[in-house]
Amino acid sequence: MSKKQVACIIDDDQVYVYGVKKMIMFYDFCKDVLTFKNGEEALGYLQPRVMDDAPLPEVIMVDINMPVMDGWEFLDAFTRIKPKDGRKVTIYVISSSIKQDDIDKARNYTEVTDYIVKPVRFESLKQILG
């Protein structure tokens, strides 16, 4: 499997974002990492690129609890605007929540590949991005 070009992290926890980005760059899992503080910011970036046929991040890792627009709202919105062409975006929901309700809800989105409980370890990252 070829190296991913761009990974996208949507999370308001700055330390966490710092840590994950560090690990990705360190192990050279992908060429670039985009980070957004909440769903709204992420959509602001993604939506025009979907419409303009521009390249999209291959992997999105989105948190659930964020201000302004949380993970669920982001997923709902993304489902509406997602590309109908061949550009594949793999989405992982990554959260500290261990509530079964959250896990089930995430898995119910067809766009979501899996739900990962924080902290994200090296092995998981490798699997997601490798």
Binding site: V20, S96, S97
Partner: peptide, 12 residues
């Protein structure tokens, strides 16, 4: 949730 967030970060 809240404790995991911080301890998770520490681990990382």
């Amino acid at each position: 949730h809240n404790l995991r967030t911080h301890t998770g970060n520490l681990e990382m």
